[in-house]
Amino acid sequence: MVNQDVVREDAKLTPDTFAALLAWLDDGVESNGERYIDVRRRLASYFDRRNRPAADDLADRTLTRVAITLAQDGVITTRPPARYCFAVAKYVLLEDLRGDRRLVPFDESRATETTGIASHGAAAAERDAREHRLDCLDSCLQNLKQEQRELIVEYYAESRQKKIQRRRELAMRLGISMNALAIRAWRIREALMTCVRECGDRR
């Protein structure tokens, strides 16, 4: 399945190898790149839960190696494709852990928090950031379609009614399953978070 020789190769992706990777990840169901984005997000979350600071980079490194293997071998038989990606990701994690012994990234925000000595300037900056985040969220919420806004308010808002019951009723009203509703709500929320992040970056 996966061996050390494969995962230690480093090379650049070409447009052809990237296109082959997208098609392989789709596994016969055209997704227009959605599947790639989703698998990359899953990998990044996996690395993050393993407390790796550069989770996105590690996800990219994993997928690059999968793409190169695919280009070299022509075929990867492991199904589903995500299972093979996870096998490669475990090697990438081990490599990163070994590298970590030599280089420990400095998490500046965490260091500031743990000292417990926040200056007035830092507190003011945090207030500004929070205020700006609220402005961004306000703007991003306005960009949603009305039915999307209503859905996330109904799905995520706190109320005295039992959460599960409220969501079940919402799913019934929309004529979809609870799972489908959860996925729909999560996608809107992720899109909002991305929008807020990009808005913050433009600051």
Binding site: R133, L141, L192
Partner: peptide, 20 residues
């Protein structure tokens, strides 16, 4: 412990206020 997850929490704080 993770900056990435702290970002999720910061977003959630604003988001919860908005939807509530």
């Amino acid at each position: 412990a993770s900056p990435r997850r702290r970002e999720r929490v910061a977003f959630a704080a604003a988001f919860a206020r908005a939807v509530d």
